[in-house]
């Protein structure tokens, strides 16, 4: 049984310039103990998707009427879209689902020490007493590789380096032992050695108590090292999804190939860095057909993709891409 099912998620924002579509008919599900990577260019709707899972989007949000998010907890299924009152939201925002936000500074109140925020959170969401909460918090700071955790416990966010702040946030999110962890660019400020350590810790927690993780990152090598499956988003749509090995080794969609080509390689320092050509269109001017067609260098003018939206077609078991069936590459 899955941990979370997302069906036909559509998210729009009311703005002065009109209705902006940030997420367009996205579906996926995640099993306990599974790690899903969510990748895609800036503005593709990754954070908005993630925040939808906890209904944390801004007040100008309009969710699609047939959007369904079902969270399967021990006490039974929770219909996230149906949650209205703040008190109901506590179930989701508290212990069961934890989110590591992309905005590290925004996650810590400036006038409270790191430690008192960690303890407060544990007192709300668990049955621990103050002493237990403090001990666990220091233990978690230690486990994410923060030296002198007892000293750091008593410091304010501004006194920590960028990477330490990010780790403290990870420690806080993991301390309630959530069923589902949503990690939005959790390792962007970390150096590689600490990143490896944090990724190991996440893997431990996955195998220790079956935590499911949705891992948002722009670093495909981090996805390769952490995730079981991956979904590639662009302009609010999933263009490719499937087991990590298949998607990274045999990407079926030109967009995924573009993301892989943009990575700086270590085996050839002279290779130019190749961005995906063209600009991301304004969300107010979403292209017809395949949203990626204006930037797709592999398409001929007049192709079907300019006017018709390609379905998610299975290219190999469990591996889907937004292609018309005639364009599915035959397996080698």
């Amino acid at each position: 049984m899955s941990l979370i099912d997302v069906k036909n998620l559509t998210v729009q924002f009311k703005t002065d310039e009109g209705l902006v579509t940030a997420v367009d008919d996205v579906s996926f599900s995640l099993k306990p103990g599974e790690v899903m990577g969510l990748v895609g260019e800036s503005g593709s709707g990754k954070s908005v998707t993630a925040k939808s899972l906890m209904k944390l989007n801004a007040r100008n949000t309009v969710y699609g009427s047939d959007s369904r998010i079902t969270l399967h907890l021990d006490d039974g299924p929770v219909d996230v879209m149906g949650l209205k009152r703040p008190r109901d939201m506590q179930v989701v925002r508290g212990g069961a689902v934890s989110m590591i936000f992309q905005e590290p500074m925004a996650s810590f109140a400036p006038a409270m020490t790191i430690g008192s925020q960690m303890v407060e959170q544990l007192l709300i969401h668990t049955n621990m007493n103050k002493k237990q909460a403090k001990d666990l918090s220091i233990e978690m700071l230690d486990r994410v590789g923060i030296l002198d955790p007892a000293i750091r416990f008593g410091q304010y966010a501004f006194e920590l380096s960028g990477g330490m702040r990010q780790r403290a946030m990870i420690a806080m999110a993991l301390s309630t032992k959530p069923k589902l962890l949503i990690a939005d660019e959790p390792t962007t400020a970390l150096d590689v050695t600490i990143q490896a350590q944090v990724l190991d810790l996440m893997r431990d927690l996955v195998s220790e108590f079956g935590m499911g993780i949705i891992f948002i990152t722009h670093d495909l090598s981090v996805v390769a090292q952490t995730a079981d499956k991956v979904a590639v988003m662009y302009l609010g749509r999933i263009l490719e999804s499937g087991p990590v090995r298949d998607v990274i080794r045999t990407p079926a969609h030109a967009y995924t190939r573009g993301l892989l080509n943009a990575l700086p390689r270590l085996d050839d320092l002279d290779a130019p860095l190749t961005p995906i050509p063209g600009d991301i269109p304004s969300p107010l001017e979403r292209p017809n057909g395949c949203v990626f067609h204006p930037r797709n260098p592999e398409l001929q003018p007049g192709s079907r993709y300019e006017t018709e939206r390609p379905p998610l077609t299975e290219v190999s078991p469990g591996h889907f891409a937004a292609l018309f069936p005639e364009d599915v590459p035959s397996l080698p």
């Binding site: 990748v39 800036s42 593709s44 992309q102 400020a189 722009h218 943009a262 860095l273 961005p275």
Partner: peptide, 18 residues
Amino acid sequence: ADECVAALDVSIQADILN
């Protein structure tokens, strides 16, 4: 530039570095 591309996706990262 202090971690100025850390928050960027790989494509814009390539673009910003260029």
